[in-house]
Amino acid sequence: MTGMADLPIWAALLVAFLVLLGAVLTLIGVLGLLRLRSFYERVHAPTLGTTFGAGSILAASMIFFSMLETRLVLHEILIAVFITITTPVTLMLLARAALYRDRAEGAEFVPLHQEADPGSAGGDHSGRK
């Protein structure tokens, strides 16, 4: 616990709030992995953790170390940039892989190779409204 007591109260409260917010958002996102029904719904869940979940924890870390070392510590931005660039790429690839596998198996709930008219909405793939 080096130097934690040196922080002013407002900074401590801000860091505490941001860290808790980030942890709660990440937890909700992972909870979505557990509760949503199909794979395509579950793809949405982790982005909660990787957008504002990671963002607020990294912001908390930036504020904390900037206050602690009394200079601007910004290298957490790098992680944030990495995450914002890489997560969409991985999720997109995963969704495409899942679609490819479902099509190869002839699953009914995924749209076929762009057979629908452009602009029309596909229906509920879980089979019930």
Binding site: D6, P8, I9, A12, A16, V19
Partner: peptide, 14 residues
């Protein structure tokens, strides 16, 4: 409530 207590608790919960 000092800054250290607030931080330790919130970090533990997180």
């Amino acid at each position: 409530m000092s800054a250290a207590i607030i931080l330790v608790w919130s970090l533990t919960i997180a």
